[in-house]
Amino acid sequence: MSMLEVKNLTVRYGPLTLVDNVSFTVEEGERLMIVGPNGAGKSTLVNAITQSIPYTGEVLFEGRNVRSLKPRELACRMGMLMQNHFVSYAFTVQEVVSSGRYAYSRGLFTTPSDEDEQLIAEAINNCGLEPMVNQSVLTLSGGELQRTFLAQVLAQDPRLLVLDEPTNHLDLAYQKHTLELLDGWLNTRQRAVLAVVHDLSLARAFSTRVLLMDKARIVALGTPEETLSPANLKAVYQMDVQEWLKGLLEQWK
């Protein structure tokens, strides 16, 4: 059984169809990356999968319709990192990361369990947040804020990580670090990553499969080599992507 099965998923907003009858699966241990031009429906698709917006069709987690899951049950299975974060109150990094354990909290004023403490500490450590753990999130840079919310979703310890532009706002060192971190995270059994990315080189290097979207539909789904073929990319981006990327690399020689 697939870990995640998306069946005929459609999202409409007024007269617009943002995601049109999309079906695919995510298998255990997989890194499935969704690519495509602006407005293709990538973020809308992952928002529907994480139940943030209304949709028609079905999303099954290990065969079970996620609509029938309670919010906490869903959060233990799927964690979502959004593209942008807007914070208005001076919570500390520690408080935001700790809130990732909400789904496991029981009782009114219980203190965090040893497992909570351990996962929170690990997440803070893995995202390089120790120096700013007691700092207000209002004082963080875009990249530090992104890492704080990445740590939150890692502390949440879901089986499937859904990431919308996880390397957004991150400098090159942290982009590399984050992708390696996700690789390490996948070493534990029964986990998978579904990520929307813009950088085709990253998708090619770090994914097991790539889903290419354009105009609300799936254009291609397969191994990075199959999906990111010159013909597919030309059809979607209306330019010779490979020549462009190779040209950029030439500059470094």
Partner: peptide, 24 residues
């Protein structure tokens, strides 16, 4: 007072609250 965790989650962000498992 008993909803302090949920209120924290909302104060961080409503979308975020939904993602961490709050019955929004």
């Amino acid at each position: 007072l008993s909803l302090h965790r949920e209120l924290n989650a909302f104060a961080i962000g409503e979308d975020n609250a939904q993602h961490i498992g709050v019955n929004v």
